[in-house]
Amino acid sequence: MTRYLLPAIALAILMITGASQAQEITTEDEIQMQQCIETVHDIQSSGEDVSLSECIGAASRVCMDAPGGMTTVGMTSCTMRENAWWDQYLNFLYQDLKDTRTKEEFALLRDAQRAWITFRDSDCSFTYEVWKEGTIRSNMYASCVLDKTANRAIELAQYVDWSNM
C-alpha cells in the first residue's frame, strides 16, 4: 500500500505548490502535439519508417523552455501536462476501439487495459521509490507515467489504424 501512497504524496505536494494548474492541457500543448503527429504521419506516408514515439516529450520540451520550466517543479509540471494530453488521446482511442470491435474483442481489451494500468502504476511507483532520496523523484515518476501512457496510446493507435484498413 505504501508504494502507491508515495507518488500520491508527490502529486499532492505539486498541487499545494500550484503546479496542478500546469497539468491542464493548454492550446500550445494541443498545437505542439497535433503538429508532431501530423509531421509523423506525413513522413510515414512518404514511406519512411518513423513512429509516433517521436512525439513523446514534444510538448513538455517546449514547456520546459518557458520561464520556470527547468526547475524541479516546472519540469514535473510540464511532463504531467503532456501526460494529460496522451491520457486524453489514449481514452479517445480506447473509446474508438470500444465502438468498432466486437463485444468479445473489447472485453479482452478492457481486461488488458486494467492490467496495464496496474502495471504502469506499480512500475512508476517503483521508480519513485528508487529515487526517493532525491528531489528528482517527482521528475522520474512523472517521466515514467508519461512514457508508459504515451507508448500505450501509440499501441492503441495501431489497433485503430489496423481496424480502418
Rank of each mutant, 00 (worst) to 15 (best):
Q113A: 01
Y89T: 01
S60F: 00
A66V: 10
S45L: 10
T102K: 09
L108W: 05
T76L: 07
C63Q: 10
G74N: 07
I56P: 03
D96G: 00
D99T: 08
M64F: 03
W131F: 15
W85V: 02
S53F: 01
C78F: 08
G69S: 04
E105T: 07
F92V: 05
R101T: 10
W85N: 03
V40M: 04
E38S: 15
W86H: 02
R110K: 15
R114Y: 00
C55K: 08
M70H: 12
N83W: 04
T102Y: 13
E105S: 12
E48W: 13
V130I: 14
A66P: 03
L93F: 01
F106R: 09
E82T: 01
G69H: 07
T72N: 15
N91K: 10
A115Y: 01
C55F: 04
T127D: 08
T71S: 15
Y89A: 00
L52M: 15
T76I: 05
F92R: 13
S51L: 01
M75E: 11
Q95F: 07
H41Y: 13
I37D: 00
R110M: 10
R61T: 11
D111Q: 10
D121T: 09
Q44N: 08
R120W: 05
K98L: 03
S53Q: 15
L97F: 00
D87V: 02
T127I: 15
K98S: 07
L108P: 00
V73K: 11
K98H: 14
T118M: 06
K98W: 03
S122Q: 09
T72D: 10
M80P: 06
S53M: 07
G74K: 07
G69L: 03
Q88Y: 08
E104S: 15
C63F: 12
A107H: 11
N83H: 14
G74S: 07
L97M: 05
R120G: 06
T100V: 02
S122L: 06
R120A: 12
I117E: 02
